[in-house]
Design a protein around this nucleic acid. Structure first.
Lengths: 339, 339
DNA sequence: CGTAAAAATAAAAACGTTTTTATTTTTCTG
DNA sequence: CAGAAAAATAAAAACGTTTTTATTTTTACG
């Protein structure tokens, strides 16, 4: 180990001295600005190489006013939907010289936003938020470009990357109906103005479309957590047989997992004792036996499109549309049985 | 929307003017340095509140020389092990006023490190790397504190957060043996000096301990990817019955998932046609029917301890030990059947 | 009440860049 | 070859802080 202790980083000043030119000349070479002779450029590049000079990004940001950094906020990192969105965004950003800051904020209430503002406003040029139900973003102080992924904003007060959530649960419910089910339970979802509310709406409209009366006992609303799924499924299973749903729609990946957990614990299987259809093509839906019928969203692409929209905004242009609705599709698997 | 366009952020200068004091006084108040009268302090705090002043982190970093930011590098974000580690680290860092930059780098070769150095050296105070087999870190130029999570470094040239990988596969293999299996396959793993190599070693030493000859045909080495698992399992299943393993150890979560995928495709089940034991307590291991016997690592805690070690280093102290070996344990489930 | 010491505040330098403006050098034209 | 225009380079200001040093104000004491 021969590195010197406390060695100061080599600065543009050192490069300038080594090359025998002014600081500004080095800067112009580095930034590819014209008006510098070939000879000077060569001298500078040599000095840079010899000294192993690397720009101090902080100083650059100070003077240019942009950090070339994007903040990504997700509810948590253990949910594979978020992981996949992050992956898509990060690849896109990295390829364009952007850096990604990250923070997890489960609920994203207004005070959380204030906190984020405090901690990150100076560090990032824009923010990418993954949240189905961001709470009153309206009053937030964040003044930089913001893109919401997975949020539902019919008022179009923000740029959003979405899918048609209502259509999603509609298709799932319809799939169950077409397989002969009529007592169809809904697990999870909150009937507010959020993305979650749209999913509930999709269930209701499918039931209505096919003329099946909705039974309040077959709706187990709740947040998009695993526990909502397991509690909901357990409750359904303990209903008397003539009420008990023969099929269930889970409103997102976690609630679907919660359902499967309860089934597993009781030695039951989706598609045998009860049919199940859910949202997001997670590991368990894909590889359990039988697989689970789900709506697959283009998760990585959602991250990528979010990043793309944000960079468009950062470049000063205006994206084509406020709401980008991406395609998702129904994947049929054995968890839905004929009734 | 009444926010002014192009409004300059409010700076410490504005606060000073408003409070009728010098910039340095404002700074001292904000940083809790003494030598400022109560009256002055109140004036300053009022001005800060009225103006909604927020420190420019960039400028602070410029002068203090620390960014209060940590860079986390993971192979990818879709692997739930990484997600969980990130979660653990992020919570710990956030609580201590640190910010997290993130980047994914699948292989982490030396040139990747050079690239990371270019992009991040000025932005982060330290780096947290999640990588079982980081390639020749020795020559890297990164001069700031570095902590490796999930890496095996017997030479103790870096701070690491590990588990006893050898013991892990030893226990899995032993569990299979105790259930009467003797033809036990190993899927994935590379016999080099990495964490992966330790897992292979654990399998071998269990076989030796119980006096079971190792059959090369029952080893399907490879990287820790899903495909390694599915190819390996497919190969095993096509062996003639008298050679075919009755049980399989998968070397990590992805290879285990790959195995399960193949079984699912063929209508087979772990614990019925073939026994399976794997690493990491992922979704599929936990909730598929039957569940999969695995070694559960304390993933969040590994992230947290990595962050803790890094902050210790950043504070100028020396962590107790170079290698922190964390406890993991065997979770028995139905995927292992008696032979 | 004068003065020294202590306390409080202010001024200025520094961090490492980019960018604007100023100066020097080179090239071209008559 | 003089002089102007063009090209190349240099100097200096600016970004928003912290921190060191200098100055002013207050306090305490003989």
């Amino acid at each position: 180990m021969e590195r010197e202790k406390n060695r100061r980083d080599v600065t543009i000043k050192d490069v300038a001295k080594r090359a025998g030119v002014a600081i500004s000349t080095v800067s112009r070479v580095l930034n590819g600005l014209d008006k510098v002779s070939e000879k000077t450029e060569r001298k500078v590049r040599e000095a840079v190489a010899e000294l192993g000079y690397v720009q101090n990004a902080l100083a650059v940001s100070m003077v240019t006013g942009q950090t070339k950094t994007v903040l990504m906020v997700v509810p948590d990192f253990t949910n594979d939907f978020n992981g996949s969105v992050i992956q898509g965004a990060e690849e896109y950003l990295k390829a364009r010289g952007y850096t990604m800051l990250i923070s997890s904020t489960r609920d994203f209430k207004e005070e959380d936003f204030e906190d984020l503002y405090r901690r990150f406003s100076g560090l990032a040029d824009g923010i990418l938020v993954v949240q189905g139900s961001p709470d009153r973003l309206d009053h937030a102080r964040w003044e930089k470009p913001l893109v919401l992924i997975d949020a539902y904003r019919p008022q179009e007060d923000h740029y959003t990357i979405e899918i048609d959530n209502e259509k999603g649960t509609f298709l799932l419910t319809e799939e169950l109906i077409r397989n002969g089910h009529r007592r169809i339970g809904l697990i999870g979802g909150i009937s507010d103005g959020s993305a979650s509310g749209r999913r509930v709406a999709g269930y209701l409209s499918a039931m209505e479309r096919y003329g099946i009366p909705v039974d309040g006992r077959l709706m187990a609303p709740g947040s998009h957590f695993e526990e909502t799924g397991s509690l909901g499924m357990a409750a359904f299973l303990s209903l008397p047989e003539y009420i008990r749903p023969t099929a269930v729609v889970a409103v997102n990946n976690l609630t679907c997992i919660g359902c499967m957990k309860v089934l597993a614990e009781r030695g039951m299987r989706a598609g045998r004792e009860i049919s199940l259809a859910g949202f997001d093509d997670h590991l368990l839906a894909r590889y359990s036996v039988p697989g689970v019928t789900v709506i697959r969203r283009p998760t990585m692409e959602m991250g990528r499109e979010g990043a793309r929209t944000l960079l468009t905004l950062l470049s000063g242009e205006t994206p084509e549309r406020k709401r980008l609705i991406m395609e998702s599709r129904l994947i049929r698997r054995g968890s839905v049985a004929k009734k």
